[in-house]
Design a protein around this nucleic acid. Structure first.
Lengths: 135, 135
DNA sequence: TAGCGCTGGTCTCTTTTTGAGACCATCCGT
DNA sequence: ACGGATGGTCTCAAAAAGAGACCAGCGCTA
């Protein structure tokens, strides 16, 4: 019925989806978008899309994330079903994080957003420079 | 060279784009993603994709945004070149917000993310319920 | 056997971001 | 003269994020 790429909805339909047809208090789509909207969520998903990583590896891979936010973002991603967390009984115990099927299914749309950003970041920087000059 | 939908990059390439090949301090892609990652940014872009709106219309359209955040989010979107702001010399003056070409070009990738969210929000809610039950 | 580093975290404190709501000047219609 | 509509700004409280200390358990090595 819905192939992933073609058969796209109209602008109005998409907006309705994001507003739950007017019921703002409980809109599942915005709720889900919020979850992957966090500062670190998408970055970690993209990292784990390549291969599973351990906690310390992720910390070294993304040096500007605090340990606190890494813990919490991974926890949230796990709660939403995007990430699987497995503890191995080594000494000291090591913990491996990997994407679930649900998490993997997010890769494609996320990738398109990243590619858009890659194609357009020059335009954005130009716009900012021009805007700041007028202020 | 890069058609929008096909010819996608590998997972590793996408991750490299998000990390600027290791230079985390100044990664344009993450910078741009951050900009549209805000709590209200994508929602407003999707609303304006349908048609231009005035400030008050947007406020009524998205009742759970505070006036302060509406002002600020629109300001940021304008600064990044996604939104055009035009003041009409009516009394009192009215202000119309519309998407620029750059803003419109964001619609497609954003739409795919929204559709993904629409298709998968059930799975996410299930995952959360299951996870919370174990805690 | 005393220190040291590695594992994956938690706890506390400070700074930043967001939200709620009052306030504002101006004009219009009545 | 007054209420409503325009698009904001200002202040203060709450929530989220960042920085960095701390922790237990084990292995290694001096």
């Amino acid at each position: 019925m819905d192939s992933k790429i073609f058969n796209l909805k109209s602008k109005l339909e998409v907006y309705k989806a994001m507003t739950n047809g007017g019921n703002f208090a409980d809109c599942p789509v915005r709720d889900v978008i919020q979850g992957i909207n966090g500062k670190w969520s998408s970055l970690l998903v993209m990292a784990l899309a390549e291969k599973p990583y351990r906690f310390g590896e992720l910390r070294r891979l993304v040096p500007d994330i605090s340990q606190r936010m890494l813990t919490q973002t991974l926890f949230d991603l796990q709660r939403d079903g995007y990430v699987h967390r497995e503890v191995f009984p080594t000494k000291p115990p090591s913990v491996e994080y990997s994407l679930t099927d649900l998490g993997r299914s997010m890769f494609l749309p996320l990738q398109q957003l990243v590619q858009w950003a890659e194609l357009n970041h020059d335009a954005v920087r130009e716009a900012r420079k021009a805007f700041d000059a007028r202020i």
